[in-house]
Amino acid sequence: MVSSNIIYIIERDVRQFFKYRWWMAGLISMNLADIFILAIVFTNLIQRLKYFEFVLPGIVVLALFASAFTIGREVSIEIRRKIHYYILSLPFSDWEVILGRVIAGSIRGLIYSSPLLLLALVFSPLPNTILLLAIPPILFILSLGISSLAIFLATVIKNFDAYITMRGLLYFLLIFNSTVFYPLSVFERLPQPIYYIAVANPITHAADLLRDILQQGIIYMDRLLYLTLFSMIFLLVSSFLYLKAIRQ
């Protein structure tokens, strides 16, 4: 019974995601332009590594980040407009609502990034095909962390403009300060704070995990553990904050 309630909430939120078709079209254009224009030209500009192969897993993670984060916008609007009273009037428990929403956010990330992942599979050497089975759970763990982070931000920042601004800042900070577009070795030459942010950034670990699987055929367990820890911590914190916000 509990699980079917959560499934209802997930289904509602996933359906809601497809209402953002204009936003999705813009994001798809951006991702495709990044892959088929930017990555191709930078491949000619960069000789130290095969840039096209390098950046594809990064773009998968970038797309997952943007789509999993959309749940935060909805939670922010709901809390601000008190729509959660309606949701709470439904025959679901608080925890079912919270878990359902976080999982729905994660599924959004998986749905959106899947076609790009397929593209990355086509253009990667894939030395160990068995390890490919690990990709969906890894992406789900990352997506869970990102949607939890988005909900965390939505519950902490009540002003919508401030939320939008913080979301934008966090996006720039986490994406530019990660190994989505360049290897970690490059950060060693940048100012130290930037390097430390890149090392601690879960996006770095997710992009490198995906890269390792697709190109080297290995998984570094410490990266996976770090990513899982990040997601679990944000899942716990955001769940409690969300619970507090809707019970007020």
């Binding site: 960069i46 840039y51 360049y182």
Partner: peptide, 24 residues
Amino acid sequence: VLRWLWFFMQVVIFGLAISYLVVV
């Protein structure tokens, strides 16, 4: 403000990082 910060981060992080990789 967001646009300015985006610009600043693009130059200071992305631009600088990628400049260590390119041949230009």
